[in-house]
Design a protein around this nucleic acid. Sequence first.
DNA 1: CCTAGAACTCAACACTCATTGAATTCAACG
DNA 2: CGTTGAATTCAATGAGTGTTGAGTTCTAGG
Lengths: 198, 198
Amino acid sequence: MSSTGRSGRRRGETQTRDAIAFAARAAFADVGYDRATMRSIAAAAGVDPALIVHFFGSKEGLFREVTALPPEMGAAMAGLADGPRQEVGLRFAQAVVGMLENPATRPVILARLRSAASHPEAAALVRELVSRDLGLLTSSLTDDRPEARAVLAGTQVVGLAFVRYVVRVEPLASMDAAAVVDVLAPTFQRILVGPLTD
Amino acid sequence: MSSTGRSGRRRGETQTRDAIAFAARAAFADVGYDRATMRSIAAAAGVDPALIVHFFGSKEGLFREVTALPPEMGAAMAGLADGPRQEVGLRFAQAVVGMLENPATRPVILARLRSAASHPEAAALVRELVSRDLGLLTSSLTDDRPEARAVLAGTQVVGLAFVRYVVRVEPLASMDAAAVVDVLAPTFQRILVGPLTD
DNA sequence: CCTAGAACTCAACACTCATTGAATTCAACG
DNA sequence: CGTTGAATTCAATGAGTGTTGAGTTCTAGG
């Protein structure tokens, strides 16, 4: 069979792959695509840079693989439409802040976002995230300009992530998650199901 | 006297300096600090790379000088507090969208924002912009957590700029300025002078 | 006219980057 | 035990980076 079984000092395949992926995600999230060098990622994973290209083909391939999102995320977004309509803003705020606080999903999102500023392919990933996944939610909520609502919600999400985690402006950067949810929920409520203009 | 007077094919000092500054602003705004190379900027300005360091000392110095904002901008922000209180969101939305559409100020803001993702010094500039300049406005509007309101407004501004100009998500990227103002004004109104939570 | 100094260019340096191909080390299997 | 093949390393390559110092060309002042 093909189950792992490391012995000696050499790690099994998936084990090393995962170590590289983990280090790469952290690096992309922390310093962006350009400054996350193969060398720094390899060093963090305790590995030779050449091994990264052996596993992932190229830096581009590494980035693509490592910033992939679980496909069930789109469904989870759409699922937020279920439940009381006057609380959808709150549910959405909880979901977004939850994903940004979750150590499994945060690096993926920050890697995409930080890299989007200089790496066109990363920008495309963010674009897709905003218009497709958020579009699923808004179009199952209303018929009144759902694409506009999706992109407005996206604006708010991107702004939150950028200001809180990338630029780190106080007091937002140190606010606890619950307070962030409280403060954002009304805005999302209006954007998602309220009147778009006054 | 020291007035310019170009003749022959050589340009006067300020003329060349300005050409370099212009090209640098555009480059930083378009591709961010790291990908805006001295060579590409020099080529765009029709000049040798060494001349840039002759004028600006270093790439860092160039960036710092070229992304400086007119000092009267802070005052302009605070000035938005004057006028009917129930329309301050609209005035603020107009001011922000105006700055982002104005070809003189847009590159400066986008250069800061795009570079903030990977360049810590640029991140500091954005941080300063949000907490200082927006703080001036909110603290002259209310005593109810003005710093929190400033950073929330900043979140919205950053999100707008990033989604509309950097990532370019439709339909926001192609929306005309007036429509953007209409759609953002209510959000700003609530953030600036409305109740912070429901 | 001539000379001082500023604008400007050229070629090079020292580095860092991603990627490569050949070598080596190991684990599993017959 | 010996051999196949994958995991892993090593050293090198070529391209691109910011910066430097010496050199050239122009303008302005005496």
